[in-house]
Design a protein around this nucleic acid. Structure first.
Lengths: 147, 147
DNA sequence: TATTGTTATACTCTATAACTATA
DNA sequence: TATAGTTATAGAGTATAACAATA
């Protein structure tokens, strides 16, 4: 069966998008597995991490950062609030918006899960040198944040 | 260390995985939208493209390439077969396996959708120079195919 | 015994529309 | 009129286990 010849790269439109999708899927699944003991999933970690980093974000802002629909943010914050990891505080200037703030318990969980996330990334990117890894991250940032 | 201070940009564990997931999600959604007129989705295109490139693949091989569960491959090939774009041919040496082969109609659809995929990739990667784009692709290949 | 494909199933994720309360 | 959040819902994606046919 002569089906294993290499395919010329020029003949693979959509290949970069496919590689991104496959790598992204693996990243999500790896982190989901690692977070299982905490009853959390990748998205929960990202909400927690982003909220802590910015010291309180509106759900709209979270949705933009995550690239997720506002209705999905509601469900994620519901989960985290039920687990006592975040609060929904009133916004000082706008009574429509609610600031998602990480609680003390959330900070503890975040510290623990950060270690897991670091290890998951290390695993995913094990084939790259530190320099290459930094290059990849820079290119990915530029992809989605052109300015 | 106070627990409420913002996290510096350099210290965001899981950030690369997150960027991969976000970029991958955008790639999938963009291609899905572009393929809508054909009644196909990203995964269908990838199955079609991979099968054509290798001149017939078993469903197990497709699953490995796509990073998808065998049961999901069944559904994808069902869709494509129903649309007349692929056939399931018997494997000459192993009566358990079925080779997914692109039909003449499938080749036509593939030619048309390749153009779409190319344009979707161009849009996603518009912020990068050709050299950077090649670098990104190389790094992504190394991520998931270390050898 | 192990593997390929298949079915069934349950759960997660994504996207949309409609609603409320505010602005 | 427009925006932030919410609810409900349907469709797509993912993962698992169990099974028949074949190796």
């Amino acid at each position: 069966m002569a089906t294993t010849e290499p395919i010329p790269d020029a003949d693979r439109p959509g290949r970069t998008g496919f590689l991104l999708a496959r790598a992204g899927g693996r990243a999500i699944r790896s982190l989901n597995r690692a977070l299982e003991p905490f009853g959390l999933r990748s998205r929960h970690y990202t909400v927690l991490s982003a909220s802590a980093a910015r010291g309180g974000l509106s759900q709209r802002e979270l949705g933009e950062i995550l690239g997720v629909d506002p209705s999905a943010v509601v469900a994620l914050v519901d989960d985290l609030e039920r687990a006592g990891l975040v609060r929904r505080d009133p916004h000082p200037d706008d009574r429509r918006t609610r600031l998602v703030v990480v609680t003390a318990a959330g900070q503890v969980t975040l510290a623990e899960t950060r270690e897991l996330a670091r290890r998951v990334d290390d695993g995913l990117l094990a084939a790259l040198t530190p320099t290459e890894r930094a290059t990849l991250e820079t290119l990915l940032e530029r992809l989605t944040d052109p300015s």
